[in-house]
Structure formats: structure tokens, C-alpha cells
Computed example of a mutant assay.
Amino acid sequence: MRTLLVTGGAGFIGGNFVHYVLDAADVRVVNLDLLTYAGNLDTLADLRDNPRHVFVQGDIADRALVSQLLAEHEVDAVVNFAAESHVDRSIDGPGEFIQTNVVGTFNLLDCAREHWAKRSGGARDRFRFLHVSTDEVYGSLGPTGLFTETTAYAPNSPYSASKAASDHLVRAWFHTYGLPVVTTNCSNNYGPYQFPEKLIPLMILKAQRGEPLPIYGDGGNIRDWLYVMDHCRAIWRVLEAGAPGEVYNVGGNSERTNLEVVDTLCALLDELLPDALHRPHTELKSFVPDRPGHDRRYAIDATKLKRELGWEPRETFESGMRRTVTWYLENPAWCQRVMDGSYLGERLGAAAS
């Protein structure tokens, strides 16, 4: 039975991946998470009695802890989700992003290199380090074109710059030391367990309370939306069959403007949570000053992942959004517990403007 060290496994994408892989494969998961505001044990509540899941609270920058976990559990692969990930927060406080995303990734890589070097035979050959990154490292697209694995990096926010730096470290540990790494760069994820600072869960929760739905600028910023479980399937497929040193882009083939996303949410909420006075939820839309340095458009070309590893998304934007809205409406207790008072839905990242 393979043992995975999953970092950031109490967060949004990491938590969904832990659930997915424990259901899909005969593996053990050692789940390392610092439990910052975006990492929540409530996401893992149904795994408390699962003998194949071990949770450890700790920092990926803690060299002694990471080395101990790799050795003690004879880890066969590291899947690195651990990251500060919200662009608006990176504008307000970039230091934490540098510490976690750059310094933390360096520590994971170097500990993994030492662990891998001590292995022998098939155990050494099977070891993998999978680094989960973002399409934001590529910068902003014009009205046409797609990001590919060879697109030049041009990060525009403290968050994307920190992720770009971590991607370069991963590449360097492969070319310099031979560590068998793979990197995935994904488009915007949505789905269950996403902390309500991000667009989709924030809009759902504000709409439930009858509060204005703040849309940056003219609402025309475009993202390629990827349902989180489709992303989890892609990560597992890359871990199984991806070639060491390679990069794989993961996209949902679902480009939408922010305004289109909010309108879709409003239509679903009109159906699933009708207003007592029968008012359409679109009446709650409110346009606010744009985010500083807001990239206009992202779009992923996932052809390589489909061609080489046979992956493609199963959910359409419409089906994934319906699943997402339904989950948030059916899980108010999770939302209430994670909104612990440190974040109450206020706008972040406005100071720079």
C-alpha cells in the first residue's frame, strides 16, 4: 500500500483530494496542515476513524517535522497543496505568501530529496513529488489564446509571484538533483469546502443573508472554471502516470466572466432558495472598485493532459455549479464553523488602491 504525504490536506483542494484518493485507491494518507484560517478539521470530520488517514498539525517549513514524517511513514509520494492562495490577502500581507509558498516549498523539496536519496531499488524509482500550482503564474491573457505548458511566466500579484518562485524551485530540484517531480498548473477551482473569501462561496453566503454581491470593476474579468473533483482526478492521474520533470496544465474548458458566474449563481439560488418576496437574486448585484493589478483573462489549454494521460473534465460549468450551490445550501453548519470571526465576508486587498 502506497503512503502519500499530502500537505495542506485540510484546505479546499487538498481536503477534496484526500477524500477522493482514499475512496479511489488503496493508499494511506499522512495529512500535514498548519490549520491556518483556510485549513479546517471540519472538512475532514468524516475521516476521524479512518485507519488509512493520519492527520498532523504542523508547518511545511518545519524541517525536523517533515523529515520525521517522511521517514517514520516511509512515504512514497509527496503531494504539495500547502499554500497561501488568495490574491487579495497577498496584496494586504505578502510576507506570509513568501514564507509558505517559497520557503515552505523549498523545505519540502529538500527534505524529500534527502528521503528519496536514502531509498533503494523500486522504492526509489516509484517516489514522486507532485507540486500543485496555478495558472496565475502565466500572467494575463488578451481576448484570445490559451496558456500552455510552455507559456512564459509573467506573474502580476504577490500570490502569483510566490507560486512562480515555488514552481521554479521544483524545476531546479529535478534538473540539479534528479528528484522525480511533476507540476500541475490549474485554472480556478470551485466546489465543496472552499473558504468563503473566494468568489463563488462568498456570493452564495452573501445571497443567503440578503447582502449585496460585490463584483470587481465591470465584472468582465474571465477565468476558466474547474470543478474541484475533476481537478482531484487529474492530480491522481498525474501522480500515477506523469513523467518526472514534466508540467501538466489542468483546465475546465469553462471560460466565464465574473458577471456570468454571479448571474449563474443567482439563477440557481432563485430556483433552490427563492426569496420570500419572490425578488430575483440579481437585484443584489453591486459593482465595486476593481482589485489592484487584476488580471483580465486566464484560459488553460489542457490538451497535453488529455493526449498523454487520458484525462478530461467530467463536469460542465452548469452541472458543477449546481453541485456546488446545493452543497453549500445543505451544509450551513460547516460554513458557520469555518467563519470563526477572523473573516466575516469583508473585502480584502483594497489598501493598495
Rank of each mutant, 00 (worst) to 15 (best):
S166N: 01
E136W: 01
L273H: 15
P289I: 02
A83F: 01
G104W: 11
E149N: 13
M229N: 10
S160Y: 01
E308M: 09
V54S: 04
D135S: 11
S166I: 09
T282V: 10
E74T: 08
R48G: 03
D263P: 02
S160W: 01
Q68T: 09
V18K: 08
K285C: 01
F81A: 07
D270F: 05
L265E: 04
N101I: 05
P244E: 14
T176N: 13
V78Q: 01
C186D: 06
G14M: 11
N185C: 14
R297Y: 03
T303D: 09
G310H: 10
V262N: 04
G252P: 03
D76V: 06
Q336E: 15
G210Q: 02
V78L: 03
G320W: 03
S120F: 13
S187L: 11
R323D: 07
N40D: 09
A10D: 02
W311E: 08
T326G: 00
A164E: 07
W327I: 12
E84R: 06
R119A: 15
S342H: 12
R279C: 06
V29K: 08
G242W: 07
L329N: 00
R297V: 06
V78A: 09
Q336R: 15
N156V: 09
T324K: 05
A161T: 09
F129I: 04
G15Q: 07
R307F: 14
G121T: 13
S166H: 03
V56P: 04
V137L: 06
L259N: 11
G345I: 12
V181I: 12
R307I: 10
F129C: 02
R209E: 14
V262Q: 02
N188I: 14
P196D: 00
S319D: 13
V103H: 09
G121P: 01
A352W: 13
D218I: 09
L179M: 00
R48L: 11
N156K: 12
S160R: 01
R256W: 03
L272W: 12
S342R: 15
C111I: 13
P289Q: 08
C111L: 05
T324L: 04
R113K: 06
C186N: 14
P280G: 13
V137M: 02
G11K: 05
D33F: 02
R314K: 11
R237M: 05
T326Q: 15
S140T: 12
N80K: 12
A24C: 07
D62K: 07
I91E: 03
F81C: 01
N31F: 00
N156C: 05
L34K: 10
Y248P: 01
R2P: 10
F17T: 05
H19G: 05
G9A: 14
L273Y: 12
E312C: 10
C266P: 08
Y343K: 05
N50K: 01
L239H: 11
L141D: 01
H231E: 10
Y298W: 08
A164N: 04
K163Q: 07
L309P: 00
E308F: 06
R347E: 13
W225G: 00
L47E: 03
N185G: 11
A241R: 12
V247C: 00
S157W: 05
T43P: 04
K206N: 12
V132L: 14
K285R: 15
K163V: 15
A117P: 05
F106V: 09
D301L: 00
A207N: 02
E114P: 00
R171W: 09
S353Y: 06
